[in-house]
Every structure is written in structure tokens, then in C-alpha cells.
């Protein structure tokens, strides 16, 4: 039986890369469910526009596209309001599961985040045996962890035959990125490249998006009960990254370097000092009602060690990062420069 795919958030960053890979391997039934239309639509893809939290919208998409596999990438990322984040990330996922069960969809691949196990403390080589923290680091992590639990519990129930797995991607970046690359390139354009918080010994995991997209396809294939590795995948969570953790500040520096900039002098702000400053900034922002320039959250983000062990994905999913960090950075900066040109043209 030919497979049929429905990718939620398929016009988004990761989703569009998954759709591209599906088309590249000549899948004939690829559909996308997204709240916004694609900037660059492909005639081979059926598009359903709608809100994932709206039961009717999504149920209709499932009925019409009749998928054998749902790849659920749609989510709100860090920075969104708390209630919206929980509504989309948790309730939305609940809707997806319900619709999948109602229509006897056999497979569901869920895009999770490596941060679901993050509790603010250093994590060097964390693997899937780590528990969810009692106190999540932030709302985003909390919402993703709740959604992931729902997805994995569904596999256990098994009455509808729905098989699920969850991919915890770490530090996504790449062309089309609206978070990491624009943020860091924005810092470059604003001339804020000479400040380093912490001593830059903390390693950090990044994932070039096409690598993460590839992992989704591998997982989808292995969820089929006939696949020899089915038992290793169904109901499991996997960390996915480039498998090449680098000290945190090396990443932006490599990006800036690719864009032709190397800061002449680097001021190192020790972690403790930065924390105190952040408290002051946050207080000032609270008093004046503005956005703080530095927050404790951001200081923690850039000074903790956070990388995962992807052995389980290597073994069960046969996942191997296909593109190196160097290549990812080159392609990302290329894309950023191109899109900058077109943005300037529009102005």
C-alpha cells in the first residue's frame, strides 16, 4: 500500500523541509496542514489551511487527505504567550491524536524538543533515560513535554492501532529559519558581536534542519509494523542533533565569519556578573514597562552545557547527520544574504 503523508506545520521551517524530502523520494501523496499558506507552493502538495486547535479544521484535513502517516511539526516556539503556547502545543496535539484515532491513521511522528528534559542545569551527553524535570525550565518546554507524553502514551493504548514516536530535535537552524539565524544575524547587523557571556567552554547541540527532516522520514518508515526495527521505534522518544556539539559562542562566530565579519576584540562577561546585570535589567524593564536587553533566561541559555547522546537514534532510526555543521552554516548564511536582498528590494 502506498503511503500517504499529512504534515502539520508543513509550510513552516521544519515542515517544509520534510515535505521537500518526501517529494524528492517520489512520494505521490503529500498533504500539508498549516495556518498560513506557503510562500513558495508546490503543485504536487495538497494544502489544507486551518487551525490545529480547531477540531473541525483538522478532522476535515484528515478525512480528505486520508493519510497513513501524520507528521506533526506544528507548534509555537519560545516567546509566544503562555496560553497560546499551551493551546497550540498541547491542545493542538490532543486534537491531532483524536483525529488520527478517529480515522484509523496508523502512524504519527511528533516533533518534540531536546529541551523537554532541560531543567536549567548542565546536561552533557544526556540520553533518553533522563526524566522530565519536576519543574520545567520554561513554558515552551513544559508544553512540549506535556504534548510528548500524550503522544507516547497513545502508542501504549494500541486499541486504534496508532503507532507513535517522538523526535526531540536540538537547536534547529537553517534556511527559512525565523528564530536562530535571524536572531544571530540581527545581532551582527546591530553590531553586537564583541560580547561573550561565560567562558565558552559549554558545549551546545545544533541541528541543521535537513538533518532533522531526514530523521522524521526515517522514523515514519520505521513505525510501520512490518519494519524490522518497528519495536525499537514505536512509543519511543529520540534525541536528534548534528552529533557535533560545539562551544556555544563558536556557532554565532562561525555564522558571522561566513557573512564576512570577525569581531576584533571580545569582551568576556563572567556568568555571575551577567546574572546580576540581568536582574537589574529585568527590574528596570519591569519598572519602565519595556523589553529588557538581557534576561536571566538568556544568560542561562548561553552559559549552560547542553548536548545530547544520539546513539539511540543512530541505532533504531539508522540516523546519521548527513550534512556537516560547516555546510549547514554556509547554506544558512547564503540563504540569509539572498533573502536580505529580496527584503531590501521590497522596501
Amino acid at each position: 500500500m502506498p503511503e500517504s503523508y499529512l504534515v502539520t506545520g508543513g509550510n513552516g521551517l521544519l515542515g517544509s523541509h520534510i515535505v521537500r524530502l518526501l517529494l524528492e523520494r517520489s512520494e505521490t501523496a503529500v498533504a500539508v496542514f498549516d495556518i498560513a499558506p506557503s510562500a513558495d507552493p508546490d503543485p504536487r502538495v495538497r494544502v489544507f489551511l486551518g487551525d490545529v486547535t480547531n477540531r473541525e479544521d483538522f478532522a476535515r484535513a484528515v478525512k480528505d487527505s486520508n493519510p497513513t502517516c501524520i507528521i506533526h511539526t506544528a507548534a509555537l516556539i519560545q516567546g509566544a504567550p503562555k496560553d497560546a503556547m499551551f493551546r497550540v502545543n498541547v491542545e493542538g496535539t490532543r486534537r491531532v491524536i483524536e483525529a488520527a484515532r478517529a480515522d484509523w491513521v496508523p502512524k504519527l511522528v511528533f516533533t518534540s524538543s531536546a529541551s523537554v528534559v532541560f531543567d536549567g542545569r548542565d546536561q552533557a551527553g544526556v540520553d533518553e533515560s533522563a526524566p522530565y524535570p519536576d519543574v520545567p525550565f520554561d513554558d515552551y518546554n513544559a508544553s512540549k513535554a506535556m504534548a510528548e507524553r500524550l503522544v507516547l502514551a497513545t502508542n501504549e493504548e494500541g486499541d486504534s492501532g496508532l503507532k507513535t514516536c517522538s523526535l526531540r530535535v536540538a537547536g534547529l537552524f537553517g534556511p527559512g529559519d525565523r528564530n536562530a539565524i535571524p536572531g544571530l544575524m540581527g545581532a551582527l547587523e546591530a553590531g553586537r558581536t564583541s560580547m561573550q557571556i561565560g567562558n565558552n567552554t559549554n558545549k551546545f547541540d545544533f541541528t541543521y534542519i535537513p538533518n532533522a527532516a531526514l530523521a522524521h522520514l526515517l522514523a515514519a518508515d520505521r513505525l510501520s509494523p512490518s519494519h524490522p526495527k518497528h519495536d525499537l521505534v514505536a512509543g519511543q522518544a529520540f534525541f536528534i542533533s548534528n552529533g557535533a556539539p560545539v562551544p556555544f559562542w563558536d556557532f554565532p562566530r562561525a555564522l558571522w565569519k561566513e557573512a564576512g565579519h570577525v569581531s576584533a576584540k571580545i569582551t568576556v562577561l563572567p556568568r555571575g556578573v551577567a546574572m546580576v546585570l540581568a536582574v537589574l535589567f529585568e527590574f528596570w524593564a519591569w519598572v519602565t514597562g519595556t523589553q529588557p536587553l538581557l534576561t536571566r533566561f538568556r544568560v542561562a541559555m548561553v552559559t549552560t552545557t547542553r548536548w545530547c547522546d544520539i546513539s539511540k537514534a543512530r541505532e533504531a532510526l539508522d540516523y546519521e547527520p548527513k550534512y556537516s555543521m560547516d555546510e549547514g552554516i554556509r547554506k544558512s548564511v547564503e540563504w540569509w544574504m539572498e533573502s536580505k536582498k529580496s527584503r531590501e528590494k521590497q522596501l
Binding site: 560545539v246 562551544p247 570577525v262
Partner: peptide
């Protein structure tokens, strides 16, 4: 140093 064309590769190799 970041000026080094092999900068990130060094970083990755040491990370390994």
C-alpha cells in the same frame, strides 16, 4: 580563532 577557515571543524573535532 574565528578567522581560521577550519574554525568550526576544529571546534567539532575537539567536541568529538
Amino acid at each position: 580563532v574565528p578567522e581560521d577557515p577550519s574554525f568550526l571543524q576544529i571546534s567539532v573535532a575537539c567536541g568529538k
